[in-house]
Design a protein around this nucleic acid. Structure first.
Lengths: 205, 205
DNA sequence: TCATTTATGGACGATTCGTCCACTAGTGAC
DNA sequence: GTCACTAGTGGACGAATCGTCCATAAATGA
């Protein structure tokens, strides 16, 4: 564990690349959780890491890219999905874990700010899609496909749509907050999809 | 970049407040759709509107707040929901309209950038929630409540959750793009919820 | 050992930001 | 209609930040 605060380093000349890289990522991660994405500038990170600004400009295309890498280096986001053979159970535990992640302290705020910054930074957007959105979607889709093969979910349902109706709904409450993001909400999401919401008076198709 | 749209105005002294306000909102709206939210700074807007920077600082707390107001002034977002007595039809037409809005040219980009900026600007966030998120959610919830009274949707379903599973899913594809945001997607959202996705081998009844 | 590579501290111009000023035209009371 | 008050205008200013560029010196690898 690194010391919180500014790492003052004296001396000119070269430092081992691996050492610098680690110091920069650590400093960026600390700043990210302390001050949010706004606190991430090459200048501040370089100062805290005891590194030269020029080095950061050389290694990362933008502060956002650095923040993204620092975030993943810091949380080592566990992407593992359970597979017990029961979709509903697997989805519940996975969604609960997700809700915990983005509800706890700065976890959700950091993700929200990264998503937010990606809206005006194409490079960050593609980096985020590549290293976060796409792999996570794929794991969820795989879960649905397995459930379809087991007959637990109708075969004519598009798994990609389900991802948006479960995780997307959670992101909605994170990014456009109005209603609370709770475990009960996650349960309701799954229940609505599994059982359907149609009432007795609804016209059949 | 060209000088298109710059309103050159000469003369010192005072101008009527209403005139200035209109000029500022118009200029901000143009800039918003031309260059995105990034193009909205007090300096640039003031120059284009032929207004003084100080006036803008006096009237709006931040460029984001100005952009938000300019956006609504520009699009006069129609919030009207149809009510034909058939939920599924009403939801479909409303979701289609929404998909059109955020799919067409800059409409979606502007909203995405506003939501994005709100992640790091608390003032903009609350303004956005107040004038956009909350009223829109309410209208959707009202639709669901009416449907429940008609027996078209089960009474034990939380309308707020449905909002996230329909509109939230669309925002998900807008803000964390990976899969296309189409009318067919909107239809699939509604179908999944109305019918349910459970297959014959699902362990729960 | 020694030539090469590369990070360091520091400094630089350019840009943008928020504030302040003197000036003057619009506004409203009388 | 007059006149004092209000409020927007152009311009300028310091502060802060950005991206870039040095000369220097430590690490690297042959």
């Amino acid at each position: 564990m690194s010391e919180q605060g500014v790492a003052v380093r004296q001396g000119r000349g070269r430092r081992p690349a691996a050492e610098v890289r680690q110091a920069v990522l650590t400093a960026a991660g600390e700043l990210l959780f302390e001050t949010g994405l706004t606190g991430i500038t090459f200048e501040k990170v370089a100062q805290r890491a005891g590194a030269s600004k020029m080095t950061l400009y050389k290694w990362w295309p933008s502060p956002g890219a650095l923040a993204l890498e620092a975030y993943f280096a810091a949380v080592k986001a566990s992407l593992a999905f359970p597979d017990t053979g029961d979709v509903e159970r697997d989805l519940t535990s996975q969604l609960h874990a997700f809700v915990h992640l983005i509800t706890e302290q700065s976890g959700g705020r950091v993700i929200a700010e990264l998503v937010g910054a990606a809206q005006t930074d194409p490079d960050l957007a593609s980096a985020f899609a590549e290293s976060y959105t796409r792999p996570r979607r794929q794991l969820a889709v795989d879960t649905f496909v397995r459930a379809q093969e087991r007959g637990q979910i109708r075969a004519d349902v598009d798994p990609e749509v389900l991802v948006d109706q479960l995780w997307g709904a959670c992101y909605h409450r994170l990014l456009l907050p109005d209603q609370p993001l709770t475990l009960a909400f996650a349960d309701a999401l799954i229940r609505n999809l599994m059982l359907g919401i149609r009432g007795p008076a609804s016209p059949h198709s």
